[in-house]
Design a protein around this nucleic acid. Structure first.
Length: 668
RNA sequence: GCCAUUGUAGCUCAGUUGGCAGAGCAGCUGAUUUGUAAUCAGCAGGUCGGGGGAUCGAAACCCUCCAAUGGCUCCA
């Protein structure tokens, strides 16, 4: 990646005038006093300016933005009725939304050809400043652009439009100086969306693509993308015979086969070990409850349509649990708790059921039933910081152990105070001064005590919880991004993401503070001065869900799991029938030592057996014949196809240590 | 739920303008006794996702439902 260049610029000259011909090949824009400019802009103050290289982070963004416009240019040339709406780009991909008849990826080739043609023409991308009326006149046939102009330009003010050949774009810029800079692009996919994300508004066709400064990096990107596709956990899961989906009989519900159940159980057992160490007690709660509990918890209000609800013939209403917390709360409520026994911490591999809409499911990452390594801590307010801190220390330990040195990032999701209707919050009545908690559209809100609708929102509990999470992150020196509006309906949370071997980010752990369920369920503990006090609930999951985490592991390791998680730890092949006895002996010895061993006594050749078992990705393939039988050894082949001879007992000792220590690396 | 694409043997996939439903692998049987990514031969395997329709005739055309995939929306 080239870096940006700082140059001295003078007022009254164009930015491009400060570049020599060599620089003009890669410099595409300029930033002065934190404002981005096109190179054709005239400086309004003298001083230092940062010239943006096309391969810098900002440069790539400008390139992708410009490529989106090139796409729009090509689309309106090929489909004159298409009305461009707007584009966006992230760190790799861009998209552009059009009001047009549906197209498919089969239509991409002519569009890409047209884009190439415009690129070859090297059309200048020219900035034109016009007053609002002038701009509205240009886009009078495009209601989407008209909306945007009215939103962004005040009456009587001027703004920029860009000309690229015959194509005009209402945009703030900056762009690459001409289409010739857009040398390596590819359209990737097409989907539909609605204008302004509103399902009731006009349908739009969204076309995705990417763009790079040169062909080589585009090729690398496409290769990585293909590799990611090959690593799809659904494909690997099938090859390793881990799970199935029965699409006719239980759409969206995973079935674990014996191999898959081994992985799942190993992960559950490991979590149990860690929970015990950290004072989380295992519980078990039912999967079905009367709907009353979901009304108490507030889930019914917000998630009724996403729950599996049913009615018995006697008229009773029941629902499958969409979350585990009410079950854990019910257990907490079985007795009176002293402040001395706090915190009370329950954990469970708890399966929850959510009616995901048909188009929203995807393999193990988004099923309709999944099992959370769920935990609920009932805390005194003074214990919040210690518990959150302890969890934030456990999280990296676990992911480093299981996945290797993984990059971990943290988000702090807070409430959006402009949309209080999305959350449980407290209100204070202006009339009678009563304080109460509620969620709902503001028009329906009234004081439960006096019926007044003159209410004031009280955010103090939310602010307090958010502060607590922030402090824990700060005290451990963990950098985090704040995500306003992403909080759960009952409280703020910390979300943890890990990067996998292909540099993809996955959300895993979540740590949430909740001051509202304790109110809904009227929870309390007895204080030192015998008064009832409200506990705080801490919701936490570390893996997230077993389904999702297994999917992440399969894609991260390309199915070649660490041995302790591997369904087949040893696969034994005798060279011929003559050595079946010795192979059986080896197999028995491994089994005796709790090693998951499989013995292949079929008639096939060794080569064929290895070929056929490769998809299963056994940790070790063991071949035994004359030599091994005579010397009490085995010939071992590891996951990377290296072979080594081992004394049987040495192999067992080594393997035992590898598994016990949860090693990622094999014994050789 | 919305848009696009797709659904043929356990798996991967052919099947042309509508004219007898195919292959490879896996499975079974037999031969072969094998030294690290496919030994040979034979056999068996199908409501062509479900339902409806136009046609002398449909896996193919039309309608409808179900499901999957890629996105959108959503994800407590």
């Amino acid at each position: 990646m080239n870096s940006n260049i700082i140059l001295k610029v003078e007022k009254g000259k164009k930015y491009s005038e400060f570049l020599d011909n060599n620089m003009k090949k890669n410099i595409i824009a300029c930033k002065q006093n934190s404002i981005m400019h096109d190179l054709s802009d005239v400086c309004d103050t003298s001083g230092d300016a940062e010239f943006i290289d096309i391969s810098s982070e900002e440069g790539l963004k400008i390139l992708r933005h410009s490529t989106a416009h090139l796409l729009a240019n090509a689309i309106v040339e090929l489909y004159p009725d298409a009305k461009p709406n707007t584009s966006n780009e992230d760190n790799i991909i861009f998209y552009y939304d059009f009001d047009m008849s549906p197209i498919s990826i089969d239509d991409f080739s002519p569009i890409e050809k047209k884009m190439e043609e415009i690129e070859k023409r090297n059309e200048p991308i020219e900035k034109i400043v016009l007053d609002k009326e002038g701009i509205l006149e240009i886009f009078k046939n495009n209601p989407y652009k008209t909306d945007k102009i009215n939103e962004n330009v005040n009456d009587g003010e001027a703004s920029s439009v860009y000309r690229e050949g015959n194509y005009m774009e209402f945009c703030r810029g900056p762009h690459v100086p001409s289409t010739g800079f857009i040398k390596a692009f590819k359209l990737l996919s097409v989907s539909s969306t609605n204008y302004e994300g509103d399902i009731n508004k006009q349908k739009m066709i969204r076309i995705y693509g990417t763009s790079f400064p040169e062909k080589k990096s585009l090729r690398e990107f496409l290769l990585r993308r293909e590799e990611a596709m090959k690593r799809d956990h659904r494909r690997i899961g099938h090859e390793m015979d881990l799970f199935i989906f029965d699409n006719e009989r239980a759409p969206g519900f995973p079935f674990y086969t014996p191999n898959g159940a081994i992985i799942r159980n190993e992960l559950i057992n490991y979590m149990k070990e860690l929970n015990e160490k950290n004072g989380w007690e295992d519980v078990w709660t039912p999967h079905i409850y009367r709907e009353t509990i979901w009304r108490e918890s507030g889930h019914y209000d917000k998630y009724k349509n996403d729950m599996f609800l049913f009615q018995l013939s006697n008229g009773d209403h029941y629902g499958l649990k969409p979350m585990n917390c009410p079950g854990h709360i019910a257990i907490f409520q079985r007795s009176v708790h002293s402040y001395r026994e706090m915190p009370v911490k329950y954990s469970e591999a708890g399966t929850v059921y959510r009616y995901e809409k048909s188009g929203e499911m995807g393999g193990l990452t988004r099923p309709r039933a999944f099992t959370i390594d769920d935990g609920h801590g009932f805390l005194r307010p003074d214990q919040i910081s210690e518990e959150v801190t302890s969890l934030l220390k456990t999280v990296p330990f676990i992911f480093n152990t299981i996945m290797g040195n993984s990059e971990i990032s943290y988000d702090l999701s807070t409430m959006d105070k402009d949309h209080p209707e999305n959350y449980l919050i407290s209100y204070i009545c202006f009339e009678c001064n009563q304080k109460f908690e509620m969620r709902g559209a503001s028009s329906e809100l009234k004081c439960p005590n006096c019926g007044s609708i003159r209410l004031k929102e009280d955010f103090s509990m939310w602010d307090n919880a958010t502060e607590n999470l922030k402090n824990a992150l700060n005290n451990l020196g963990l950098p985090y991004k704040e995500k306003p509006g992403d909080a759960a309906f009952y409280g703020p949370k910390i979300d943890v993401h890990i990067k996998d071997a292909l540099d993809r980010l996955w959300q895993v752990s979540t740590i949430q503070l909740d001051f509202f369920m304790p109110i809904n369920f009227d929870l309390s503990y007895i204080d030192a001065d015998s008064k009832k006090v409200r506990p705080v609930i801490l919701h936490r999951a570390i893996y997230g869900s077993y389904e999702r985490f297994i999917a992440i592991l399969l894609e991260h390791f390309n199915g070649k799991l660490p041995t302790w998680l591997s369904p087949v730890e040893a696969y034994i092949i005798p060279v011929s029938e003559n050595y079946s006895d010795y192979a059986e002996y080896v197999h028995r010895e491994l089994c005796k030592n709790h090693i998951r061993s499989k013995l292949d006594l079929s008639q096939n050749t060794i080569s064929k057996k290895i070929k056929l078992i490769r998809g299963m990705r056994p940790s070790y393939i063991i071949v035994v014949g004359e030599n091994e039988k005579n010397s009490g050894t085995i010939s071992v082949r590891n996951r990377n196809d290296r072979t080594k001879s081992y004394n049987l007992n040495d192999f067992i000792d080594n393997l035992d240590r590898e598994v016990r220590d949860h090693n990622i690396k094999q014994i050789f």
